[in-house]
Amino acid sequence: MKWISGILLIATLMFMGCKEKIEKATLKLDLSYVVDGNPLQMNSIQYQNAAGYNYSITKLVYYISNVKLLGDGIDDFQTDMIHYVDITNPSTNQITITEVPYGQYRGIQFTLGVDASRNTTGGLENNTINNNMSWPDQMGGGYHHMKLEGLWLDGNNTSAYLMHLGTSHHSNCYQNRTFKIDSESLTQGLTMDINEWYRTPAVYDFATDGTSIMMNDASMEKLARNGDDSFDN
């Protein structure tokens, strides 16, 4: 009879375990891009930034790391993921976060770039994508947080801009939104307005702040702070 008692004990423990299991879900973040609310069209000088320059976007790649879901009456949910985005590659425009506990959340917070703990040369997985994002040791090492490139009209001249961020100059993005996770999967949209990079808190001016700024800490910092609210719309 002992074996029957044993089985009953195990079954009871399993049942109790099920009762205490916290339900978890998958959260998908769909990334999209606009300029002043209009869907982004690449390779066309059709946008105007806060400094008054007409410009185009030919490339936008960046990292998102350190995603934290801010709990509303529950614990915050912190991830240690790092996600590379090339906006022309649709598969990179979705971030999948698994094992998210059910509950109410009040916001999403993340680093636009590589979080400081990993932003050292060799700090990320050594693959060709991360290699192409490397920030040479000659300029401080680590990785590009972002490469935003294109053309702009400087009077009658067409010029190029390279808005590259690296070293300590990442953006801290926060989006205040309430959402409830109460099923297996939930998708939320995150939209970057590219003109936000040039608008607030300080107008970024290609002519005076520079268009190749990897060795210009002041301009990178100005751009990075403008980027803090690039997703806040």
Partner: peptide
């Protein structure tokens, strides 16, 4: 020359960077 190559002075590394000296782009 390496310092020119790997800074914006030469702006070579964005296309020809890393150990491969190509970004394959």
């Amino acid at each position: 020359g390496m310092d020119i190559f790997f800074t914006e002075k030469g702006e070579c590394f964005h296309c020809h960077g890393s150990e491969l000296f190509t970004n394959n782009d």
